[in-house]
Amino acid sequence: MQKKFSSDRYDPLGSDRDALSRRHFIKGVIAAGTVAGAAGLMTSCSDGSDNSEGAPAAGSVERLVSINVNGNVRRVDVMPNETLAQTLRNKLSLTGTKLGCDRGSCGACTVMIDGVTQNSCSVLTHTVRDASVVTVEGVGGANGEIHPVQQAMIEELAPQCGYCTPGQVVSGVALLQRNPNPTREEVRQALAGNLCRCGAYNNYVNAIVKAAGSA
């Protein structure tokens, strides 16, 4: 379902596409055989270890899948109703992806799926088995180099509290991949789904424009 989107970001003035995404996500949860209650959207496993003490709830039987994360194929047990954010954070120890709302509103959990930015809190892990996922930990490449966007954000002292920063980084990197020389306005549009309560927006734009110039 991610591939339906042609743009990096939903258009905040006409958010139909995002609503569609959320609707598809919830339909996916229901189709996965779980009750579409709040409990179905929660963290169910701390570290991928066997939770034999707890009887599996309906729809929570895990299945081994392979997903390509940051260039590596990772084999991981996922529940049908498990979100990509949960898998990344709780099973693959990729805690750079943050959860700010867990409802597709804030953008702190932004990752790239086949080069397209997505809120990983609103993507079911089993839907990305054939896709390539890039998180903040992987934007610099396989050898852990720092991406020019990240370097520029350090130089510009872009983050404040830093909680939204991984999402801003991923959105910025995704933009430069598809548009190596964006205008300030294009950068703003690309970051429109990443909320920053500290209000460091200007600094993030400055950094991404600077990175584009140096990339």
């Binding site: 963290t43 701390s46 570290d47 954070r89 120890s93 990729l94 805690t95 750079g96 992806t97 943050k98 959860l99 998180t135 903040v136 930990e137 720092i146 990240q150 954000m153 350090i154 130089e155 002292l157 872009a158 983050p159 830093g162 909680y163 920063t165 991984p166 980084v169």
Partner: peptide, 28 residues
């Protein structure tokens, strides 16, 4: 100006906020 030591972990995603910690035997 200077670069505070927590900027780099913030942009790399390695800075650990409360929910990022795990502890052996942790429950919810």
């Amino acid at each position: 100006d200077f670069t505070p030591h927590d900027v780099r972990p913030k942009v790399l995603g390695t800075g650990k906020y409360t929910e990022d910690f795990r502890k052996e035997g942790m429950c919810y």
